[in-house]
Amino acid sequence: MIHEYLEYPTKEQWIDIEEHSKINHLYLDIKRPEITDFFALFTEHELASWVRLFNNRLGQSRTSYIFFMHYYNKGIPDKEWYISPGKEGQSIQYFPHFTKDETINYKVMFDYYVDAFYYKFFSAWDTIFHIINIQYQFDIETSKDFNRKILTNLNSVNPVLKRQINKTNNSKAFKRSRVLRNDITHNFAPNDISSGISKKKENGKLKKISFGVGNYTPSNEFVENIDGIIEEFIKFLNVFKRSLEATEKKG
Rank of each mutant, 00 (worst) to 15 (best):
P9F: 07
E12W: 09
D16Q: 13
I17M: 06
E19F: 08
Y27Q: 08
R32S: 00
E34Q: 09
F38W: 08
F39W: 15
A40M: 14
T43S: 15
E44Q: 14
E46N: 14
A48M: 13
W50H: 14
W50Y: 15
R57D: 12
T63M: 15
S64W: 04
Y71D: 05
K79E: 15
W81K: 05
Q90K: 13
Y94R: 13
F95T: 00
P96D: 03
H97D: 11
D101S: 06
E102V: 06
E102P: 01
I104C: 00
K107L: 03
M109D: 04
F110R: 05
D111Y: 12
V114A: 11
V114E: 04
Y118D: 07
Y118C: 10
I132F: 00
D139S: 06
F146C: 02
N155H: 14
S156G: 00
V160T: 12
V160C: 08
Q164C: 10
I165K: 00
K167P: 01
T168L: 02
T168Y: 03
S171K: 02
A173F: 04
F174P: 05
R176E: 06
S177V: 05
S177W: 01
R178V: 07
F188E: 10
I193Y: 05
I197D: 03
S198I: 09
E202V: 14
N203G: 00
I209R: 12
G214N: 08
T217Y: 07
S219F: 15
E221M: 14
G228K: 11
I229Q: 09
E232K: 11
F236L: 15
L237V: 09
F240P: 05
L244Q: 02
E248A: 07
